[in-house]
Every structure is written in C-alpha cells, then in structure tokens.
Write a protein that binds this DNA or RNA. Structure first.
Lengths: 338, 338
DNA sequence: GGTGTGACTGGGACCGGTCACAGTCTGAAC
DNA sequence: GTTCAGACTGTGACCGGTCCCAGTCACACC
C-alpha cells in the first residue's frame, strides 16, 4: 500500500544470471576466475554485474565453501606491554592491508583476561575464522596449546618458544642482530658493555642475550647483565641496579627502545651523560627511538613487512601447503646515543 | 580405506536435534533465548549441545538472518596522525571487548589511499558488516557521504562536522573543556595565554578554540593563536612562530599533548623553561602526557569509555531505535607543566 | 461435549552462494 | 558418417542455520 521501494532487495546471483541471460553456474564461474566460460558469456555477465550493482554475499559464500574469508589478529600480550606500542599499530595495519588486497577481512581478538581467553579459544576453534595471526611472545601460552590442539592454522609473530617447528613463524634473527649491535659497540671502542635483556620466556629476551654473550666472548661479565620486561620503567630499574653494582660501565645494550630510554633516565639521575659517559643502544626502532633525546641508536625491526609475511605464510598453511617459516633482516640504525 | 576420522564433520543443529530427540526448530529456540520451550526440552537440548560440542555456524546464521554479526572499525585518518597514537589502541581495544561481550566481532578497515577508500565503501555498502564505528575527524569526508548515502548505520567518534544530526556520535564537550583549561590557566595567574589550535576542519580544532576565545573574553588576542595538525612537529613549528611574533607569553594551551610536547621543545630552544617561564597545557592525556619531561598538565579524554559507548549507540541504531548522541565528560589533570 | 486458548513442537521453505554432474554443441579424427 | 574429446552451459542438491505456519495437546470455560 504505497510502500516506498527505496529499501529494495540486494541483487543476487540469480538476478545477475537473469539479466545476462545465462545460468547461475555461469555467473559463479565468471566471478571465480572465469575459466571454461565463453568470451560472450563473460562479457554479458560482467555487464550484468555492473548494471545490477551486484555484490557477492559473504555469508552465503562462506556457508557453501566452508571458508570464513577472514583471519584473526589475536593479541595475547598483556596490554601495558604491547597495546600502547606504536609498532603494534604498524603490525595491525600491515595485516589489514595485506588481507584487504585479497578481499579478506581482519577480525581483531583480544585475549587478556582468562574469560576472554576461553571465549577466544572457543570462537577460533569453532571455525569462525580461517586462521590466526598470533601476536604473543610468551612461552607456553595455554591459548597456543589450545590452537594447536584444535588444529587451527596459525602463524606466530616471533619464534614461538617451546613450539618451534609446531607452527609457522615470521621472526628476525635475534641472535645475529644482537651480535651485530654488540660488535658495533665494541668497534666504537667500548669495553665494559652491560646489557638489559628482556624476559627469558620471550625470544627477544632469550636470544638477544645469547648473541650478546657470544659476541662478547671472554669479555663477557655476568655482573653486567640485568633483565627488564621491555618497558621504560623496567629499563630504569635495571640500569639503576647495574649502577649500584658498578660504575665501571661504558656502554649499555638494551633489548628494547623503551628499556634504553629508561636506562638513559637512570644514567641521567646518576649524573652520567649519554653518549659521552655511557653509550646506550636500543632495539626495535620503535617510534620512540627517533624522537628520543638523544635519538637512540637501535636495531630496526622490519615492522612494515612482518605482518604482510605472516599473512602470506598463514594463507599457505590454510591452502594445505607445507609449513614454512621466514626470518627477516634487521638493520643497525646509528643515531646519537651510541 | 583405513581413513582416520580425526577430521570429523563439525556437529550441526540437526545432530543436536537428533541427540536431544527433538526437532531443529526446538534447538534453534533454545539457542535463541529459549522462549516457548518446555523445561524438559530445554534440558535435553542443552545436554545434547554439551555432549556433541555443538557451536553455531556463523555464516549459516548470517545468511538466514541477514545480519553479519560484526561491526567495522573504520579508520580514515592519515596514518601519521592517529595510527601511531596509543590512544587509538585504547579505542580499538575497548570496541573489541564491548563487541566480544555481545558475541559479535570487530572487523578492522583501513581507508587511507583512494583505492582503499573505494574498496571500503564498497565492502561496507555491500552489507558485510552491520554498522560502522567511524574513526575520522575531518569535515566533509567523502567516505562518510558514501556511508550516509548507502544508509549504513554509523556512529562517529567525535562530532561529525558538517553532519551533526545526520548520524549518532560520541564526543566530549570540546568547548567546555577548553574553557575549563583556559580558566585554570588564568586562575594560576597567567595573563598572556597563547593557544595552538588544531585544524579547523576537526571538531577539536574548531571548538577548543571557540572555548578558549570565549573564556579569554576581552583578554583574547588573535596574535596569540596558531594552528597545528596535532603532531609534535606542528606544535614545535607553531610555538616557534608564536615566539617569533612576541616573547610576551606566559602560558600556552595546546589542543593536543603532542603539540604541547612540541611547544615545550620550541620553548627550550628559545631558552625558556617550562613551567617557570611559560606554562604549557595539553589535551587528551595520551600516554605521552604522563611520561613527558616535565609531565604535562592536560585534559583527559575518557578513551576507555568512548568506544564502549560507540558500540552501544551503534547497536541501537541497527536495532532501529532513534538516533542518539552522547557527550562524555573530560577531566582536568594537573601535573607539572602548568 | 464442544469450543477456545495458549503453550509447545515439527517441518517445509528459504537465505545466496558453490559444486558436481549431466547434457549440448562443435570440430577434428578415423 | 560416426565417434569422440573438449569447451561450454544449466540444474539440482547442498551448506547450516532461521522463520513461519500448521498442528498437537492440555486445560478451562460455557
């Protein structure tokens, strides 16, 4: 009764088929690559799609193919460590763009609290996404166990400690990078080099320390090793502890830019100048590093490429290809702090 | 032929119905609230769900209901302004959690390049999501026009300049907040107060300046107004311009913490101390503010609540309720810089 | 006893795609 | 003139839910 037709039904594949004078099957074939379709039919279909303004229905396709057409970006890190980090945004954006190019979508999942973790595990195991981009660095993550158990295609950002070989991963050469930075510091003439390592249950915490120790060789002094949790506060605390133990330090290699910044603060409080009295080097080349005062010498991680590679690897796994891992190069960025 | 059955089919609603000895319809009713179901039937179904490990198929449900079960988190801001901002992460996380509570998912969309914008507009208009959480502050965004045109339920983060009234929005009282900060500065005894406003095509840029001007009253001096784009670099440049014009300034109100930080840098280069010579106040209370040296006095935006409110409002619109907007309170945070 | 009503249940139709299969047509090979 | 392969097309079944309608049953009321 005088109903306006503004909210008309979205055109379906049947409408397109009718408009093009072909069958649904042919339309479907044109949409999916167009093999075994005559040029005439293809043209007619493409024209009909244009005229009708047809867009495929995601849900219907998923139902028929059994594929969700989306990947999860799964954050398991406690918020204060990663979520506020600008590099995380780069990672996220890179993944979103890599997926958009493939007409897939990114679903953001946050697994902080135990309740959230359970929900997430359930959600992912239920097949609501085709795979998981796992942003977690801590060893023996129960969520990871659940994912492996459920056979969900997963790719890890950074080496999955305790599960190397169980899933694909994109990482950087932690050990080599740490050696390179240590070598650089020694080449600058520093001899008493301390390090502020990350937690031992993270790949960066473990292997950067290994690289540091190896490169130092006989000059390695266990007294010059402290640990933090990658935050600036922990860097400040670690540097303070080091200085309480000895003032005979001429350089510090911190496993993150945040800890390097904290170390600079601790040194300033102790009346020491950077880099004149003590050189300080960071790791990551996060946004912080360049804008810091003084600008931090650091090891750049290829944040812009990381998530793109993760997506590539994950899609391979989903397609049933053999699991593959990738190691990306880092780059020494020399600024003022060391 | 000896095929393992590990990769068994996921249980469907039919399996549950069979296990419970009822029909599909009854199972569906139990799942969706359970009205008009006898207690016996409900128990049987719930037990069957447990035994079979049943999980609803998202795609099938979407197809039948015509609802996607997801919202888009749509970023239209140029990356350098917002993406690296820790507050953005809070926003994102808040939205993800609010949705997870409702068993919905968050799809991240990035519309930076023109190609991306076109894709996003198409994607959203095609109904792949139920609504859009729009994170954009610039006036006359063509993407917003496209969304309104297509009738996509949308809620804006911050007042949508040029489209107030056309869509729901969650915002803060820009004008009142700016007045409060200005009043505070005057109460501290400052008389020559400059401001570094944001771009005039953003609500923060426009209304914070309005509030500042009104609160200054007769003391308002157009010579003491500069604009930036919220970044630290622009704050530095703006403060430098102000100082070139006059040294008769005893306080600066910047429309973002980043610009406040830039202003502090410019003042330092000019040999002026903060807050002794010039007081500096920011806006946002982003992560930067507290860790800045000196810690910034600023206006806290309720980042943690913002996206939760956005989700609430958007779901209301999707459910056909009348459009509603919300204004959240800000809070003056006094630290060392002013 | 007949009728009405409300609680509950079952099942067919449908959402919009994909897929497998059967069928048609064309042209080359024998 | 068959036969046959290969290119192309159409159709029915299906994916796993929801919706709606018809139907059953128990109970109250006249």
């Amino acid at each position: 009764m005088g109903e306006t037709t503004t909210a008309r039904r979205r055109p379906t594949i049947r409408d397109v088929a009718a408009a093009a004078g072909v069958s649904r099957g042919t339309v479907s074939r044109v949409i999916n690559g167009g093999h075994w379709v005559s040029p005439d039919a293809r043209d007619a279909v493409e024209d009909a799609i244009r005229r009708t303004g047809y867009t495929a229905n995601h849900a219907a396709r998923s139902l028929a193919t059994g594929r969700a057409g989306s990947l999860a970006f799964l954050l398991t890190e406690p918020q204060h460590l990663l979520f506020a980090d600008p590099t995380f945004s780069l990672l996220l954006r890179g993944a979103a763009e890599a997926l958009a190019q493939r007409s897939m979508t990114l679903v953001l999942l946050v697994a902080g609290t135990p309740a959230e973790r359970a929900n997430v595990a359930h959600f992912v195991s239920a097949g609501h996404v085709d795979g998981v981009l796992l942003i977690s660095s801590h060893e023996s993550d129960p969520l990871l166990e659940a994912l492996l158990e459920a056979g969900v295609p997963t790719v890890s950002c950074g080496l999955p400690l305790g599960h190397q070989g169980d899933l694909a991963a994109v990482s950087v050469d932690e050990e080599g990078s740490a050696r390179a930075m240590t070598r650089y510091l020694r080449e600058q003439g520093h001899r008493r080099i301390a390090t502020i390592a990350g937690p031992d249950d993270t790949p960066g915490g473990r292997y950067r320390l290994v690289g540091f120790r190896e490169e130092m060789g006989d000059a390695f002094d266990p007294e010059l090793v402290e640990r933090g949790d990658y935050s600036a506060e922990s860097g400040l605390a670690a540097m303070t502890r080091l200085l309480e133990r000895t003032r005979d330090i001429d350089a510090v290699f911190a496993a993150s830019d945040g800890m390097a910044a904290g170390a600079v603060q601790a040194l300033a409080r102790a009346g020491l100048r950077v880099p004149e009295d003590v050189a300080v080097a960071g790791f990551d080349d996060s946004g912080l590093a360049a804008s810091h005062e003084p600008p931090l010498t650091t090891m750049r991680q290829p944040w812009d490429r990381l998530s793109g590679e993760m997506v590539t690897l994950l899609l391979e796994v989903i397609d049933g290809a053999p699991r593959r891992s990738v190691t990306l190069p880092t780059e020494l960025i020399v600024r003022d702090s060391a």
